[in-house]
């Protein structure tokens, strides 16, 4: 095979999901409780700390803010920093089928 004569250079165009659906990376998902979220309670845009601190640009501003679960990696910063404690990180998957008995033996 011969080499192409047209000059090829590496030059990328922007698009979401360069690393794929990074929501797959997530072990825990953020779940917002509208009863606690300041913005949701007031019904207008206030606070927005979760939006400002999301490193993945996965939270849309609003009342309440919305999380893009297709790309959210589940870091949990939003839950940690929410001043109202309105976001819980819930496991994507339950474990514990193989637990250890009190005597240390596996069952």
């Amino acid at each position: 095979m011969t080499a192409p004569a047209r000059p090829r250079i590496a030059i990328s165009r922007p698009a979401a999901g360069e690393a794929g659906r990074t929501g797959d990376w997530r072990a825990k998902r953020p779940v917002l409780d509208p009863a606690k979220c300041l913005t949701a309670k007031r019904g207008d845009v206030t606070c927005q700390i979760c939006w400002a601190l999301c490193p993945d640009a996965c939270i849309t501003r609003g009342a309440p803010p919305r999380v893009d679960l297709e790309y959210c990696k589940g870091c949990g910063i939003c839950a940690q920093e929410c001043p109202a404690g309105a976001i819980e990180m819930e496991p994507e998957q339950a474990h514990g089928v193989c637990a250890v008995d009190d005597d240390g033996a596996a069952r």
């Binding site: 000059p7 250079i9 590496a10 030059i11 990328s12 165009r13 922007p14 698009a15 999901g17």
Partner: peptide, 24 residues
């Protein structure tokens, strides 16, 4: 060949994988 334009933003000379890869 390079495009440096805020209205047509490009990333010039990024990591290129060993294999071919599809764009968006």
């Amino acid at each position: 060949l390079t495009v440096v334009d805020p209205d047509d933003p490009r990333n010039i000379g990024p990591v290129v994988l060993a294999d071919t890869r599809a764009d968006a």
